[in-house]
Design a protein around this nucleic acid. Structure first.
Lengths: 156, 156
DNA sequence: CACAATTAGTTGCGCGCGCAACTGTTTCGG
DNA sequence: CCGAAACAGTTGCGCGCGCAACTAATTGTG
């Protein structure tokens, strides 16, 4: 707070360490690395694969299109992540009868097993992380998240 | 806030859209893209180059080592960004007399000109962005940023 | 004072990314 | 209906990334 207003008050130089966009990016990378210890080291998933697992697992089958829209990943990134997961037999694809352009992605039995093991661990990590915030900070943080998302036009 | 506590209360599925690490990452990408309209489209800089400009510009010459530590970018990424900027004659390098392993990086006259033009625009963008937050949200947000950085052991 | 360990910086390499182009399918306008 | 446009998904390509290995200079230790 102090740094923000002090720096913005017409100073010439820019101190990157106090610059919000930069700090936000660094924090996001840090949180992501912290979290990826679970899904990377223990389950051998990278970020796109983890996101596909999380999205497919919370539904009963969905299309790559839907995964891309929901995670905001590029469709090629989704396509490749699904291909990897299919090779590992964690998901399977079936051409949709209604629209044969689409392919329904579903968790296999092994995929459901991993999902059931993975999700509680990941949620626990999130809980641990947010536990370092006071109630006021958490409220302000989540409120700010929503306001900034809305300002930037990031869809819900 | 509601989403966070509701979801963490023992639900089986994971809704990625309400998952803080994921939202944080998405927001950081969004902010970064918003900001990069300035330094990419108007000045032809990518993120590493912009960070090098910002770091070098706020000092009177510094080493690649210092830039890497300060921005937390990988040293190879810094090295390549400096090389690009040198080609465009925005920075210049001189071997340090004291320690001939080091090379002092400095803005050229053109680099200083760009820096002077660039920084106010970027700071204005930050100001616009944060203006969408209430005082309470901003305070909570910056406080949370600090707490999370500290929790993750991200150095100041 | 020699030689091992450390440090600054660069470079070869494999990989994952997004863009653009492509295939196959569905939809819509005339 | 038929052809153009739209859409789901995949693939070829160039690029930037981090890792590991490298060069060159410095520091520390016996």
């Amino acid at each position: 707070m102090a740094a923000v207003s002090a720096r913005s008050a017409g100073e010439l130089g820019l101190e990157l360490a106090g610059f919000v966009p930069y700090r936000l990016n660094r924090l996001a990378v840090g949180v992501s690395n912290h979290l990826s210890e679970i899904y990377r080291e223990r389950f051998g998933l990278d970020i796109p694969e983890w996101r596909v697992m999380a999205t497919v697992g919370s539904r009963h089958g969905c299309t790559a299109q839907h995964i891309a829209a929901s995670t905001r990943m590029h469709k090629t990134r989704v396509s490749r992540a699904i291909a990897h997961l299919e090779q590992r037999e964690l998901v399977e694809r079936a051409s949709s009868a209604a629209d044969r352009r689409e392919r329904e992605v579903r968790l296999t039995k092994a995929g459901r097993r991993m999902y059931a093991e993975l999700v509680p661990l990941v949620l626990e990590r999130e809980r641990e992380l947010l536990a370092c915030l006071t109630k006021e900070h958490l409220r302000g943080f989540v409120g700010a998240l929503e306001a900034l998302e809305s300002f930037l036009g990031l869809p819900d």
